[in-house]
Design a protein around this nucleic acid. Sequence first.
DNA 1: CCAAAAGTGTTCACCGTACACCCATGA
DNA 2: TCATGGGTGTACGGTGAACACTTTTGG
Lengths: 239, 239
Amino acid sequence: MPYVYEYPHPAVTTDVVVFTIREHRLEVLLVERASDPFKGCWALPGGFIGIDEDLIDAARRELEEETALSGLYLEQLYTFGKPDRDPRERVISVAWYALVPLDRLPEPRAASDAAAVSWFPIDSLPPLAFDHDQILSMAHERLAAKLEYSTIALQFMPEKFTLSQLQQVYETILGESLDKRNFRKRVLSLGCLEETGELLREGKHRPARLYRVRAPGRVEFIRRNHARGAIAQNTGSES
Amino acid sequence: MPYVYEYPHPAVTTDVVVFTIREHRLEVLLVERASDPFKGCWALPGGFIGIDEDLIDAARRELEEETALSGLYLEQLYTFGKPDRDPRERVISVAWYALVPLDRLPEPRAASDAAAVSWFPIDSLPPLAFDHDQILSMAHERLAAKLEYSTIALQFMPEKFTLSQLQQVYETILGESLDKRNFRKRVLSLGCLEETGELLREGKHRPARLYRVRAPGRVEFIRRNHARGAIAQNTGSES
DNA sequence: CCAAAAGTGTTCACCGTACACCCATGA
DNA sequence: TCATGGGTGTACGGTGAACACTTTTGG
């Protein structure tokens, strides 16, 4: 299709901040760039949007190319477009973030356009290409903020999980430890979880009850107080 | 600058949802399109991004072309990019929303590319061009949501205003009436307002105290409860 | 003195927080 | 029997919600 609008067109890319939790640390997936600009530098997985490709499909595609994972929670973060953010030409990037459940940690495999792919703890990142440090820190802020007023953390959980595992996810992202009894009371009162009836036995201690999410893939806003302090709407685009 | 990246480039536009409050109603600014596609149809003010123009500058420019207002609160909403949202070629639109203070209501003037410009109440809109109805309803949701956990409503206020005026703003957006005493207690306890010492005398009744915003242009998140229920960080891009 | 909007406190219910001990299992 | 993590309840304080009357002005 020819350009019908009489304006110069910028390039448009998509970048994805892929979060997971490994060994009690919040980590993100980065790729080592195989080509200029910023060759050899680490960057967010991403690439150009197909001319007939929906934005979320492009994000999903980039995600799958790097992780071979599909069906992840994916949410649009922000669109970055400072005129000089790419040294070669004007590039506007629609940034997204995705959450990988604890049990679906892929061995990330390098795609064609990446020299290497690896997980990095959020607090010890290498220097990043372009403005990817800004994208990443905005994504981190957003994730931490959403923990407080939504059920987004459930997107990190496997199909079945224990309350202790869920608590560890919260503690990792918030960077503080929480009271066990209060945590359980609060999270159960949301009504988002249900017992599977099964137990997880591991190690030499009492087995833990396994729970599942009642409506997986659904992220709900939590409104405290107000009326009868309950749950409000749903949101979230899931891939 | 030539295209160095070997991918077809989409057109990129910006659209702005301009909110204000008039006569106890939430209203948005729309323009009547003077040219195809959707000639004669109403649409959000917007247009193409300059090839060397920052995204927020483009939004600001479109806003000023239609309203002659500068310095408004402006926040990025979402980027819309379904492949068929423009019938002619692929167009990706970075959408923003802006809030116009009560006392700065412009007589909107038609810019070159618009047949007419007018305010419409949010609940009686004409049919809109492209996917602008989706953009508008997402903006409305976001605004209503942010009322609850931020001080965004202050962006609607003139430099000096009464608490009753502020309460009317809240009531208009939320679509429900609020208790006067509770409202005052809550809003004053945020610590964002200060008395000017002046009084507004109008009509045959007791004059009202005038307040001003302590840090105008700053939108703060409110965290209830949690620790010592106070205010957290700031956010918001202001133009 | 009447109309109209401004301004002001208290009570109650509920939720968030702090806090310590018993339980079930494997070794 | 011991070590390890799983699991449970209560008491207190603060905040949100409900609710009605007095004050100041102009006409």
